[in-house]
Structure formats: structure tokens, C-alpha cells
């Protein structure tokens, strides 16, 4: 774990630069548009609004017995927004090293700065949206104390994206196909999670497969807090810990093995 800790310490020392890079990434992405960074917020907001309008207002669809809530739109949004945040952060972080090749080859900077900046740039967009989500759902169960676990969940999700995003970025640098495979996995992954259907609707024999998706633990926990106002189940916390630990171990290994060659691969 020494390599990973050293890397984290370096990033901590360079946090001012990391923040500059983050602001720049957001500005560069929307350079030349009239609304600028507002587009970053508009897209997820409009998607969520569309879910609400279509499922809860126009069609007023209802979930069956045993679901944490009856309204389909309300259920969907509680899992979908965190999933969108996860997919966005992971995809950006994964491409970050390859994209930063020209800068890294000409400036003496630690490569891990770029996955970190990608995750931060994504968090800057989605953290306020997730906070809005909390405000919108809190009245459903009278501001239950379990809402206190919500910021911790968001922080752990950012950590998950940083660890796995950085690991995937190194793998993508080694083999570009990684990006295609992961992009495909991200588009399908939403079906292998309780985002669209409550977990109890999955065939009992296949329920274990849900845990292959790191976000299953998070989505379950978000839904418990937002829809029921209850503390997340212990299984969710264990799932999160396992995926975080796996990410840290993998990243540590990749950092150690790629240390002197990473920039050459970009």
C-alpha cells in the first residue's frame, strides 16, 4: 500500500494545482457555449425531470408489493442519479491519462493528477445534484436521522470512482481496448443493479450477480435512506468496503508495476 499512500500524499501536496486543473477541465469542456458550465448541470437535471414527468405525472406507474416505494419515477431517480454520477466519473477518469498524454510528456507532473482531476470535475457537477436529491426526498419521511449517512455515502462513492477510475486509466494506457470494454460495461451495468428494478424482483438464483456491480451496494444504500429514511443495511456497508479495498489493492499494484513506464505508453 506504500505506493498508493505516496501517490495520495503527492496529490495532497499538489491540491491547489489539482483544483486549477479541475476548473480548467470544466471550462474547457464547455468553451464556446453560451451557457457554459450550466450545461453540465442541465443534462442530468433534465433527465431526472423527464423520469419524474413520464413515470409519476403522465403515466402514474406504480411498483408492486415489497418495493421501497410505489411511485416508479421516485424509485428510479433515487438510484439513477447516483448511477449517472458513477458512470460519468468512471468514464472521464478512465480516459484522463490517455487524453493528458501531450501535457504529461512535456511537463513534470504526477500522472495520477489527471484521474483525480477527472473525478473531481465530475463530483463538482454531481455532488450539488445529489445534495438537491436529498432535499427533495427528505420530506417523504420527515427528515429521518438516517439522512446523516448520506454525505458519507457520497464521499465513499467519490473515493470508489477515484480508485477504480485511476486503475482503469492505467489499464487503458496499457491497452486502449479497456475503454471500449468498460464503456460497454457501463451501458449495461445499470441493468445489473437495483437502479431500474428492486433487488427482490431479480431471480433468486441470480441475485448474487448484482454484487458484481460495485454500485449495487451504493444504490441500495441510497434507496434505503432516500425512500425509507432508514439506515443502510450492514450488507451494503460490507459491499462498499469490499469494492473500495479491491480498488485500492489493484491501483497499488498497477502503480507499482507501471511507475517508470506509464508516460511512455501515452
Amino acid at each position: 500500500m506504500q505506493t498508493l499512500l505516496d501517490e495520495a500524499r503527492t496529490l495532497c501536496r499538489l491540491r491547489a494545482l489539482c483544483w486549477t486543473l479541475t476548473r480548467r477541465e470544466t471550462a474547457a469542456r464547455y468553451a464556446g457555449t453560451a451557457l457554459g458550465a450550466a450545461w453540465a448541470y442541465a443534462q442530468p437535471l433534465l433527465t431526472v425531470a423527464a423520469y419524474y414527468l413520464v413515470f409519476d405525472v403522465v403515466f402514474a406507474m406504480r411498483l408492486g408489493e415489497g418495493a421501497p416505494t410505489r411511485a416508479v419515477g421516485t424509485y428510479l431517480i433515487a438510484g439513477m442519479l447516483p448511477w449517472m454520477a458513477f458512470a460519468d466519473a468512471l468514464a472521464r477518469a478512465m480516459a484522463s491519462l490517455v487524453d493528458a498524454g501531450p501535457i504529461l510528456q512535456k511537463n513534470a507532473l504526477p500522472p495520477m493528477l489527471f484521474p483525480a482531476r477527472a473525478v473531481l470535475a465530475s463530483a463538482v457537477v454531481f455532488a450539488p445534484l445529489l445534495a438537491l436529491l436529498l432535499l427533495a426526498y427528505a420530506p417523504l419521511h420527515g427528515f429521518a436521522p438516517a439522512l446523516l449517512a448520506y454525505p458519507l455515502l457520497v464521499l465513499l462513492q467519490v473515493l470508489l470512482c477515484a480508485l477504480w477510475g485511476a486503475a482503469l486509466a492505467i489499464l487503458a494506457a496499457a491497452l486502449r481496448d479497456t475503454m471500449q470494454v468498460v464503456a460497454f460495461a457501463l451501458s449495461l451495468g445499470v441493468f445489473l443493479s437495483p437502479v431500474l428494478f428492486p433487488a427482490h424482483l431479480f431471480p433468486a438464483g441470480w441475485a448474487w450477480a448484482l454484487w458484481l456491480n460495485p454500485m449495487t451496494a451504493w444504490v441500495g444504500a441510497y434507496q434505503t435512506i432516500l425512500l425509507q429514511g432508514a439506515w443502510p443495511a450492514p450488507a451494503a456497508w460490507v459491499g462498499m468496503a469490499v469494492w473500495l479495498a479491491l480498488g485500492a489493492l489493484l491501483l497499488n499494484l498497477l502503480l507499482r508495476r507501471s511507475r517508470d513506464q506509464l508516460t511512455d505508453w501515452l
Binding site: 491547489a16 494545482l17 486549477t20 486543473l21 480548467r24 471550462a27 474547457a28 468553451a31 464556446g32 501531450p102 501535457i103 510528456q105 512535456k106 511537463n107 507532473l109
Partner: peptide, 23 residues
């Protein structure tokens, strides 16, 4: 080594100066 790396074409010279400086 190689000059001009990291300049973003859509930003002004001044903005690039601050960003390039931070690098």
C-alpha cells in the same frame, strides 16, 4: 523541450498564461 504544450486554443493568451504557469 517542446514549447507550447498545454495551451488551449479556445482560451485567451492570458488565461493560458495562468494555466500554463500552474503546470
Amino acid at each position: 523541450l517542446e514549447l507550447g504544450a498545454g495551451f488551449h486554443p479556445d482560451f485567451t493568451g492570458r488565461q493560458n498564461l495562468y494555466f500554463g504557469g500552474s503546470l
